[in-house]
Design a protein around this nucleic acid. Sequence first.
DNA 1: GTCTATACCATGATAGAC
DNA 2: GTCTATCATGGTATAGAC
Lengths: 212, 212
Amino acid sequence: MSKESKPESKAESKEPKLSFKQQQLIVREGAIIDATNSLLAKKGFDLMTMDEVAAEVGIAKASLYKHFPSKEALAAAAMIRLLENTLAFVRGLDTQQAAIEQLKAVLAWALGIRMKGGLPTLPSENTSLREALLNNKVYINRLWDLNELMAELIEKARGDGAIQKELPTDVVLFTIYARSCDPTMDYLRISGQHTDAQVIDFLIGTCFRGLQ
Amino acid sequence: MSKESKPESKAESKEPKLSFKQQQLIVREGAIIDATNSLLAKKGFDLMTMDEVAAEVGIAKASLYKHFPSKEALAAAAMIRLLENTLAFVRGLDTQQAAIEQLKAVLAWALGIRMKGGLPTLPSENTSLREALLNNKVYINRLWDLNELMAELIEKARGDGAIQKELPTDVVLFTIYARSCDPTMDYLRISGQHTDAQVIDFLIGTCFRGLQ
DNA sequence: GTCTATACCATGATAGAC
DNA sequence: GTCTATCATGGTATAGAC
């Protein structure tokens, strides 16, 4: 986001080129994104205020705007980091496993993140954030990468007979995405009738096996 | 909402007791709720403004506040009307049908409403509306009525072997509710690869039969 | 009960000193 | 790059005339 992060890509094989200040800046931007993540998950984009973010990080609001030029840009950065984490997880999957098991692992991982107060993956809502994200090339690129990886897994699973042949890939993909940010999780947790692990099992089960 | 609507419950078997003005008032409140419904579905509670509602109805914003004391109350009224429509639909289901078919019919109906620009049933989001709704006794009562009817259907379907025995009723209930406001619908429609009827079929199928 | 006009406030964004 | 202080916008809600 800030200009100092550019030189880092030029030379990183040598001794640490990043000055103390540069490192601190990166750490601080990480902290800002952490706070943004948490608040986005808790309140959503519209209800999250820049004052809250600044307060949670412990800096002044004006300083926030030195790092990120707008609320949209800040949220986009958070969403991009989330996407990159997801990509890393998917790329690190055990390719020995059946494709369907890998897909379940992705969903289980995403649900686990949300249980810990993290962000849902999908920019589902009718928020002004959606528009901003669709105009963000980095975000779109990462999303496309993820979609492609997931589509490969889905098609492999379909080839294995683990997914209905009649279901188009996009239907399966969005259904999994949607389940990862399904409000059912919150309601089941509030009811307090089941453990977190049970809730995740139910969600994965009803997604992949359905109600019957 | 307004005080004039009370006498109507006293006597309705006789000739029309409602004066022209009273009828007009009811019609206008209906129009207000229509507009609210549409805007809530399109933009969500936070992004919907009272100016927009007033503009869509064609009255001044101040007049709106004569009918509904706050934005929350207005949205609650819209949600309550939606719930009552849903209750009417459920109560009018063909009880000769298998319970599972009745459940599918409810989901299909809800998805159809959304396709036509209507509201999703679930107050899922982290919006300030949620809190207001939870403090609204009428809303809670209606919601409870609906949950009870749905739970009966679910348990009957489970008895028929159409729903997994291992799945608790609340899991099934929320899963169906969630599917009724699933963002997957919007994404599949935007992609333009499928007809509206196909999209509904996919959503119902992946809900009840799962991905496999 | 409808209108116009306005109070009031939350919040996104910026200025300018250090 | 951080702070304090401030601006500008837009949105809920209300006052007061008709």
